[in-house]
């Protein structure tokens, strides 16, 4: 049996060596994903509160427009560049991030709660022997201790827990995509772009990336959508569910579904929102024919604005909705489709 490194309290002097906030950006095919800009909003607020620098790290084989990351709030942008980083693989990505963190010693690292962030952060955390809080909806600095306070929902969103990592650095958290607005471009901002090239051993892995297959049923990826139109059992059948998809198409929105709708075969699992599906926080969430079981609410109740249509006035979904219409989805949804069609035509 191998020996374990003791993760108990790091020495206090050691803690104070850690400075600065680092956010973990994401790219696909060299394009920086907008979730990176949301992280810059989060990171900038934390760095301002602490009076420290904000850095952003991106990994890939090539990345367009790294300057934009500076214009949107980073003081330093680290681009870890290697042909093997073209696609995300947990081992080379986590090894490279750990290497950079050992150089930079950031006091806080924030990533997005995407499939990438939620995979790489636990690996980085255990390699750095520190603590991690997943899927936060709020990050603040304790004004007295300057410690990061990480608030996240648990038990299906039925409780909120505030968590801290008092005696270990860096303090690590992932935050829900869409829970912050993307940082705007400020053309006057200046900063540094630093390209990091590490030796090949850093990126060695037995994992082999075979292929990426686009899900043709997701015209708009649910995790990245500003608007989600979701349907439940109240849509009655596959034909009824098509109204959900039609409105989504008109709005350029993602299509969401309850577990029932997926199990009835009206759409596929990648569309399932809730405890055993995806957790989303779009700007606008339409819930049609969804009663609002706890399992579904857990996946969507942090959405900015929630609109619900259901025939049952006591449906739980109305408790989390900002705007509720009690009525038959087959009467109301077609009216909505017409109204948005008109709106889009006039826009």
């Amino acid at each position: 049996m191998s020996t374990y490194v003791n993760t108990s309290v790091q020495h206090e002097n050691e803690l104070s060596q850690y400075k600065g906030v680092l956010v973990l950006g994401e790219q696909r095919d060299g394009k920086i994903l907008s979730v990176t800009f949301e992280l810059l909003t989060r990171g900038r607020a934390l760095a301002n509160d602490l009076g420290c620098e904000l850095s952003c790290v991106l990994l890939g084989d090539h990345i367009d427009n790294l300057e934009e990351v500076v214009k949107r709030g980073a003081d330093k942008v680290y681009f870890i560049k290697d042909a093997s980083l073209k696609n995300f693989l947990p081992r080379p990505y986590s090894n490279a991030i750990v290497k950079l963190c050992r150089e930079l010693k950031p006091e806080i690292i924030v990533a997005a709660a995407t499939t990438t962030g939620r995979t790489v952060m636990p690996l980085v955390t255990s390699k750095l022997e520190t603590g991690l809080t997943a899927d936060c909806t709020e990050l603040t600095i304790d004004p007295e201790t300057k410690i990061l306070l990480q608030t996240r929902p648990a038990i299906g969103g039925n409780i909120m827990a505030t968590i801290k990592t008092p005696n270990h650095r860096p303090q690590m958290a992932t935050v829900r995509p869409k829970s912050a607005k993307p940082a705007p471009i400020d053309p006057s901002r200046t900063g540094e772009v630093i390209v990091k090239e590490y030796e090949g051993a850093t990126f060695f892995t037995p994992e082999k990336f075979l292929e990426y297959i686009k899900d043709t049923t997701q015209e708009v990826s649910i995790e990245e959508a500003d608007i989600i139109v979701a349907g439940g059992k109240g849509m009655k059948n596959a034909d009824g569910f098509k109204m959900v998809e039609e409105l989504a198409r008109i709005l350029g929105a993602g299509v969401g579904a309850t577990r029932d709708a997926v199990e009835l075969g009206w759409t596929t699992y990648p569309h399932q929102i809730g405890l055993s599906g995806k957790t989303v926080s779009p700007k606008l969430y339409f819930a049609f024919g969804i009663s609002g079981k706890i399992q579904h609410l857990a996946g969507m109740q942090t959405s900015e604005v929630i609109v619900a249509v259901d025939k049952d006035p006591d449906a739980l979904i109305f408790r989390v909705a900002d705007y509720g219409i009690v009525g038959d989805v087959f009467e109301v949804v077609p009216m909505l489709i017409e109204a948005f069609k008109k709106l889009k035509a006039n826009a």
């Binding site: 993760t7 929902p153 505030t162 968590i163 990592t165 270990h168 509720g324 219409i325 038959d328 009467e331």
Partner: peptide
């Protein structure tokens, strides 16, 4: 052996100021 500590646990504000309409 746990680096993280729970500071507090609270109930989320579930209900919003819902505008209710009837079809």
């Amino acid at each position: 052996g746990s680096p993280t500590r729970v500071v507090k646990v609270f109930s989320p504000k579930l209900s919003r100021d819902t505008i209710m309409k009837k079809a």
